[in-house]
């Protein structure tokens, strides 16, 4: 079985001499929910731009479901749907026409194109807005419009570049549900995001790109296991003046009734609770400090800065 996306030794040097990608290779397997992460300017958008034929690669190859993007362009593109980061539709056209026209670009016969346009606009809650010019839509609706447009030819690989940027929390949740549904139904999804929490929640595998190179390519689970410690937050029944001192645990008081405890990988939580009990500290609730991935990400980038790796 060929990979949904196979990138081999891809490099990109822009006309102004900027080297955006340095010989990167990675694969995304069929059915995967894959995150491509990295700081701004790391090369994420360049990579996705090459895959979507918006950027010319300097060297290297891209295969989509086994079809080479350069040699077998038509088949490769049939498999691919792209939701870009910035709005890229004609703002004066109506919602329906934008999606319907995209279907036409794929050579879809009229009746099928009508039916699919209706289906995906309904799915994304935009059918009522079908006759509205795109510029009149809210930010979240515009993004959903781009998702409907990317799905109208039913691609097997869907790429989303920052799909939830500027989308409110409720909408983000429903978009996550939607993406999980279509992934479960067999669509391979590649996602870039700034919300690392999003990647942690949705994705199975991950590649981290930094300064044009892949610095990590593994499963999210494996990546999180690399974390040496985890932070837990405890909400307390009674206020404390000072953080309690417990041997081997780093504890800080965020505010009088909130404790933040760093628990190392080999330490047990039981012990911590025993100590709390002895000190008469009553815990109302406890949660994992989210954005574990974010912590890891920051520590990775920091480590690199400390060790002074330079290109």
């Amino acid at each position: 079985m060929s990979a949904a996306l196979s990138i081999q030794q891809l490099s990109k040097t822009y006309g102004n001499g900027f080297v955006a990608l340095k010989n990167i290779s990675f694969e995304v397997q069929q059915g995967d929910f894959f995150a491509l992460l990295g700081p701004n300017g790391a090369g994420k958008s360049t990579t996705l731009g090459i895959v979507s034929s918006l950027v010319n690669a300097t060297s290297g190859s891209v295969e989509i479901f086994g079809h080479d993007l350069a040699k077998d362009m038509t088949s490769a593109k049939q498999y691919l749907g792209v939701v870009p980061q910035e709005f890229n539709f004609n703002a004066f056209e109506t919602v329906y026409n934008i999606v319907r026209t995209q279907a036409g670009f794929y050579g879809m016969p009229g009746a099928l194109a009508d039916q699919r346009s209706k289906h995906y606009l309904t799915e994304l809650g935009l059918w009522d807005k079908r006759d509205t010019p795109a510029r009149m839509l809210s930010g979240g609706m515009k993004r959903r419009l781009m998702i409907a447009r990317a799905l109208v030819h039913e691609p097997k690989l869907l790429i989303l570049d920052e799909p939830t940027a500027g989308v409110d929390i409720e909408m983000r949740r429903s978009m996550w549900d939607f993406l999980q549904q279509i992934n479960a139904a067999g669509t391979t999804i590649i996602l870039t995001t700034h919300y690392l929490e999003e990647a942690e929640f949705l994705c199975k595998n991950i590649a981290i790109i930094d300064q044009g190179k892949i610095v990590q390519n593994t499963s999210i689970k494996a990546l999180l296991q690399q974390l040496d410690s985890e932070c837990f937050i405890f909400d307390l029944a009674a206020n404390l003046e000072y953080p309690p001192e417990i041997v081997d645990y780093q504890i800080s008081l965020e505010d009088p009734h909130t404790l933040v405890v760093e628990v190392k990988k080999d330490q047990s939580l039981n012990n911590l609770f025993v100590q709390f009990e002895l000190m008469n500290i009553s815990v109302l609730s406890m949660r994992n400090k989210s954005n574990r991935l974010e912590e890891m990400f920051i520590s990775m980038v920091e480590k690199k800065l400390e060790s002074g790796i330079e290109e």
């Binding site: 910035e86 890229n88 539709f89 004609n90 703002a91 026209t101 050579g107 447009r149």
Partner: peptide, 18 residues
């Protein structure tokens, strides 16, 4: 030009149309 400016030219570039 306005398709370039509004970037909806990308709709065509991403499609398999020659």
């Amino acid at each position: 030009y306005s398709a370039k400016f509004q970037r909806n030219v990308e709709e065509m570039l991403v499609s398999p149309m020659p």
